[in-house]
C-alpha cells in the first residue's frame, strides 16, 4: 500500500473556488475529509460556505485549486452524475424527493443506475426507516417533513454509496424529529458508511460528530473531534452562544 492508504476515504484538499468560471471565490484553501465509520460535520455561521464546501466535494462547483479524492482516486474533474456512479450519495437540502411519486418509487429511482436486484437494499432502508415501509404506496409529497427527509436519505442509500453526504438534513424539522433523524444517521454510520453532513444546529450535530469542521469565510477555522470542539472556549463563544 502506498501513501493513498493513509489518506482519508473522501477528502477535498485545499479547495479554492466559487460558482461559475468567473464567480468570486467562496472557498479559500478549505479541507474537508471523512473516513469509514465516522460522522463528519461541517458547521459555521451563516454564509460561511458550509453548503458550498459540500457542493465542492460533490462537483457542483468550479474548483480553481485543490483536489477531491474518493478512495484514493482523483475525482476532481468528474461531474456530479459521474460521482454518483463512483459511489457518492448526496442528499440536497431542498427538493430532495420526487413529491408526486410514491415512497417506493422514490427508492426505485434512487437505484436507477443499478441494473442488479436491489430488493435487499430496499429492505435495509425499510429496516432503517420502518415508517417508510408502512407508507410505501403513499405519495412522498404527502408525508411530514421528517418522513420526507427519511425518504430523501433512503433514496440516496439505494445506490449503496461508499459515502453519504447530507446537506442540512434537519432544516425545518422539529427538535424531536431532529433527534430521531440523528439517531438514524448514527445507525447508518455504524454500518461503516462514512457520513458527511452540513448542519445548522451546530451544538446537536457536534454532539454526534466524530469529526467537526468549523468554517469561517470559506476557510477552516477550527477542526477537531466533536467533543473537542464543543469544549473549545473559542468555538463555544463564537458559534455556540457560550
Amino acid at each position: 500500500m502506498n501513501a493513498a492508504s493513509k489518506e482519508p476515504f473522501l477528502i477535498g484538499r485545499a479547495m479554492t473556488g466559487g460558482y461559475g468560471k468567473s464567480g468570486p471565490d467562496i472557498l479559500h484553501n478549505c479541507t474537508i475529509a471523512v473516513d469509514p465509520g465516522e460522522i463528519a460535520v461541517i458547521v459555521g455561521p451563516n454564509g460561511a460556505g458550509k453548503s458550498t464546501a459540500m457542493k465542492a466535494l460533490f462537483g457542483m462547483l468550479d474548483l480553481r485549486q485543490g483536489a477531491v479524492h474518493l478512495d484514493g482516486v482523483d475525482i476532481t474533474h468528474l461531474s456530479p452524475q459521474e460521482r454518483v456512479v463512483q459511489g457518492m450519495g448526496f442528499v440536497p437540502q431542498t427538493h430532495n424527493i420526487f413529491t408526486s411519486m410514491t415512497v417506493e418509487e422514490n427508492l426505485e429511482m434512487g437505484a436507477f443506475i443499478r441494473r442488479d436486484d436491489f430488493s435487499d437494499t430496499m429492505a435495509q432502508v425499510y429496516d432503517l426507516f420502518p415508517i417508510l415501509k408502512d407508507k410505501r404506496h403513499q405519495a412522498a409529497g404527502e408525508l411530514s417533513g421528517g418522513q420526507r427527509q427519511q425518504v430523501a436519505v433512503g433514496r440516496a442509500l439505494m445506490t449503496q454509496p461508499k459515502v453519504l453526504m447530507l446537506d442540512e438534513p434537519t432544516a425545518g424539522v422539529s427538535p424531536i424529529v431532529m433527534d430521531e433523524l440523528f439517531d438514524r444517521i448514527i445507525e447508518v454510520a455504524r454500518t461503516g458508511l462514512p457520513v458527511l453532513m452540513v448542519e445548522q444546529n451546530a451544538r446537536q450535530a457536534l454532539a454526534i460528530a466524530d469529526k467537526g469542521y468549523v468554517l469561517v469565510m470559506g476557510a477552516n477555522a477550527h477542526t477537531g473531534t466533536g467533543k473537542e470542539l464543543l469544549a473549545d472556549p473559542e468555538v463555544r463563544q463564537s458559534f455556540l452562544g457560550g
Partner: peptide, 22 residues
C-alpha cells in the same frame, strides 16, 4: 416500467433525476 417512472421522476424534479443517474 422503469423508463416510464424515470420520465415521471424527471418531470417531477429534474435536478434530483439527474442526481439519480437518469
Amino acid at each position: 416500467t422503469r423508463t416510464g417512472k424515470s420520465m415521471r421522476a424527471y418531470s417531477d424534479n429534474e435536478d434530483l433525476a439527474l442526481l439519480s443517474g437518469i
